[in-house]
């Protein structure tokens, strides 16, 4: 039976729709013209401007400090949570636990931002890097837990029982057997948490305070109050970094499945 070509045409158009804006942005970051409709020759001037901007460097430092600490904390919490969700799946406590972990994934970001802001104001916590850190961990934990949970689905717990039969304590069997075997999932979760923290704008916008400008907050004010060509350059660099992270995590996932298959 002949199949209609219509779905393939739509797919091609959808992919063009996805990539054209990004492609034009990357090309324009090397355009010496101030406005993007005309090509006026290759230039790295916007990159040079970017590197000279002290605000961008400061924002990058804040972003990295937050992202690294958020990743560390949410990997520990998220992995423990995934373990509990999988190991004690039948219990009522885990049903509550699962719902709680699922909530940050479905709640619109602005609601999470505003409710955390109210909480910090009511509790008298001064807004700044620390409140951003707390807010980021709150949503990153869920993503890490879900990623590690995915890995756990095909984990064989008899290995743990074997280790304990051979005299390993629960802590030893976790450290020497469980965690190494879950490593690809944990690393993929860590990369995800890192990228989400680096990229978050809405929640950060609500809980940031004076002196805690992160890179997305910086980009936002650049978009709102001028400096477009510099954002092209900055965006291109960000694209390069995230794509590398994605390809790396894909590699890890493939390595893992390659070993099993």
């Amino acid at each position: 039976m002949r199949r209609s070509r219509f779905p393939l045409v739509v797919t091609a158009l959808v992919l063009a729709f996805f990539y054209l804006p990004i492609l034009i942005l990357v090309v324009n970051s090397f355009n010496s013209a101030r406005f993007s409709s005309r090509w006026q020759g290759f230039s790295l001037v916007w990159y040079a401007r970017l590197f000279e901007s002290p605000e961008v460097w400061q924002a990058l430092r804040n972003t990295l400090v937050i992202a690294v600490s958020v990743t560390a904390v949410s990997v520990v919490l998220g992995t423990a949570a995934a373990f509990a969700l999988h190991r004690y799946a039948a219990s009522r406590l885990q049903r509550v636990h699962y719902t709680l972990i699922y909530t940050p994934l479905v709640v619109p970001e602005i609601l999470m931002g505003i409710s955390l802001l109210m909480f910090f104001v009511a509790a008298g916590v001064p807004l700044g890097l620390f409140t951003i850190f707390l807010a980021h961990v709150t949503f990153c934990v869920s993503y890490v837990a879900m990623t590690v949970l995915g890995r756990l689905q095909d984990f064989d717990f008899s290995v743990i029982e074997a280790a304990q039969d051979l005299g390993a304590s629960p802590w030893q069997s976790a450290r020497k057997v469980l965690i190494p075997m879950l490593m690809p999932g944990i690393v993929a979760g860590a990369l995800l948490a890192f990228t989400l923290s680096v990229d978050d704008f809405v929640i950060t916008f609500f809980v940031a305070g004076p002196g805690s400008t992160t890179l997305p907050l910086r980009i936002y004010s650049m978009i709102k109050y001028g400096a477009p060509p510099m954002i092209n350059a900055l965006s291109t660099l960000l694209l390069a970094v995230t794509l590398t992270a994605v390809l790396l995590s894909q590699r890890l996932v493939r390595l893992k499945s390659g070993k099993n298959g």
Partner: peptide, 13 residues
Amino acid sequence: WTSFLVRVFAWKS
């Protein structure tokens, strides 16, 4: 996976 703000900005320009 690419930055959300960057994509919105691409359309804005």
